[in-house]
C-alpha cells in the first residue's frame, strides 16, 4: 500500500542546556544533573494514503512532540521521518510543503496583525503554488469551502469567534495543497456545538480532498469518531495500535483499558449505574521513566517480569500491535 507518512524508530530527547557554571562544575568532576527528558522513544508508524491515524494519550505522553517531528517542525534526535518518500526537514529547517499542521489554538497560530486573506495566501504565493494575481480568488475559494463568507478575507483574527478562527486555520493549511494534514487537538478549546461543526467540516474536506491525516487528541470519543486506525501513547512510546474499531471494542493493553474505562459515559437511565474504574496513581516523570514497562507502577496486572523487562510492541493475530507481557 501507498505509505504517505512513515516514521522509523523516531526518538526525541530534550537535554537540559547547562549553564557555564554547571559545565565548569562538570569538568571539575562535580555532579551535574544532565538527565534528558525522553519525550518520544523509538516510535515507528506509517499512514497510508487517504487514511486517518488517531494519536491518543494524556498530557506529557509525547503525542504532540511526535506530531511535530512528523510534520517537519522539529528534528528527531534519532530515527527518520518520510513524507511522500522524502525527509520533511533539511537540517533544522522544514523542506517540504507536502505536510501541513492545524494547531489547537488558532489565536496563537494566526498573525494578529495580518488580514486572514493574507495569512491564507502567504504560503501558496511564497512557494509558487499560486500567482499573486490569482491569490484573492484562491483565498475566496478556500474561505467558501470552510464555510466562511469570502468577504471575511479582509478581516483580522480578533474579529472571529474561536470556531471561525479554526476554520481559517484549516483553510490556511489546506491552501498549501498538502498530502498529509496533522491536526493537533484541533477542537479541544471549542464548545460542544462548535466542536461538532468543525468535526463535520473536517469529515467533509477529508472525503472531498482524499486527505491523509494524523489526528492528535486527548479526547477518546473525538478520535474514535474520525480515525481509521489509532495509536495509544504512554510516556513516549506507543503501547497499542490497530484499527480504531478493534482497539475501542476490545482494548488489550491495561493502559488502554484503563483509559477507556476512565471516560465518563453518558448515563441515560437510572439503571445505567455510573461506576468509575480510575487508573490508580499518576504519570511518572519522563526524566526518570520506571524500569521495564513504563506502566508497571500503575498496572493491575504487573509482575516481576514487567519491572525487569520492557515488553516489545508486537503484532497479535488480528493485526493489533500491543506492548504488554500479559495481554
Amino acid at each position: 500500500m501507498n505509505q504517505i507518512l512513515v516514521a522509523e524508530g523516531v526518538t526525541k530527547r530534550f537535554s537540559p542546556s547547562l549553564s557555564l557554571g554547571d559545565r565548569i562544575a562538570g569538568v571539575l568532576g562535580a555532579h551535574v544533573d544532565k538527565r534528558a527528558v525522553h519525550a518520544v522513544t523509538d516510535v515507528s508508524l506509517s499512514v497510508t494514503a487517504g487514511e486517518t491515524l488517531g494519536l491518543v494519550g494524556e498530557s506529557g505522553c509525547g503525542k504532540s512532540t511526535l506530531g511535530r517531528m512528523l510534520a517537519g517542525i522539529m528534528p528527531p534526535t534519532e530515527g527518520r521521518v518520510l513524507v511522500s518518500g522524502t525527509a520533511p526537514m533539511r537540517g533544522r529547517h522544514k523542506a517540504t510543503t507536502r505536510i501541513q499542521t492545524v494547531f489547537q489554538d488558532p489565536f496563537a497560530s494566526l498573525n494578529p496583525r495580518m488580514r486572514i486573506g493574507d495569512s491564507i495566501a502567504e504560503g501558496p504565493v511564497t512557494h509558487g503554488l499560486t500567482s499573486r494575481a490569482d491569490a484573492p480568488r484562491m483565498v475566496a475559494d478556500w474561505l467558501a469551502r470552510v464555510g466562511l463568507d469570502p468577504a471575511f478575507a479582509a478581516r483580522f483574527p480578533h474579529q472571529f469567534s474561536g470556531g471561525q478562527r479554526q476554520r481559517v486555520a484549516i483553510a490556511r493549511a489546506l491552501a498549501m495543497q498538502p498530502d498529509v494534514l496533522v491536526c493537533d487537538e484541533p477542537v479541544a478549546s471549542l464548545d460542544v456545538s462548535i466542536q461538532a461543526q468543525i468535526l463535520n467540516l473536517f469529515l467533509d474536506l477529508r472525503r472531498d480532498l482524499g486527505l491523509t491525516c494524523l489526528f492528535i487528541s486527548h479526547d477518546l470519543s473525538v478520535v474514535r469518531h474520525v480515525s481509521d486506525r489509532v495509536a495509544i501513547m504512554y510516556l513516549g512510546r506507543i503501547v497499542e495500535a490497530g484499527s480504531a474499531a478493534k482497539v475501542y471494542a476490545s482494548p488489550r493493553h491495561p493502559y488502554t483499558q484503563g483509559l477507556l474505562d476512565s471516560v465518563p459515559k453518558l448515563r441515560l437511565s437510572i439503571d445505567d449505574v455510573a461506576d468509575f474504574k480510575p487508573i490508580a496513581g499518576e504519570l511518572p516523570s519522563p526524566l526518570s521513566p520506571p524500569s521495564g514497562c513504563a506502566f508497571h507502577p500503575r498496572c493491575p496486572k504487573a509482575t516481576a517480569l514487567c519491572r525487569a523487562e520492557r515488553p516489545a510492541l508486537t503484532a497479535r493475530e488480528d493485526g493489533t500491535l500491543v506492548a504488554c507481557h500479559h495481554a
Binding site: D191, L199, N200, S221
Partner: peptide, 24 residues
C-alpha cells in the same frame, strides 16, 4: 437535543454529527 447530538459518542464513527447551526 442539539447538545447531545453534537457529541461524537452519540453518532456512528465517521458519520456526520447532527450539529446545531450558528453560534451563541
Amino acid at each position: 437535543r442539539g447538545l447531545l447530538d453534537s457529541l461524537p459518542a452519540m453518532a456512528r464513527p465517521g458519520e456526520k454529527l447532527n450539529q446545531i447551526p450558528g453560534t451563541t
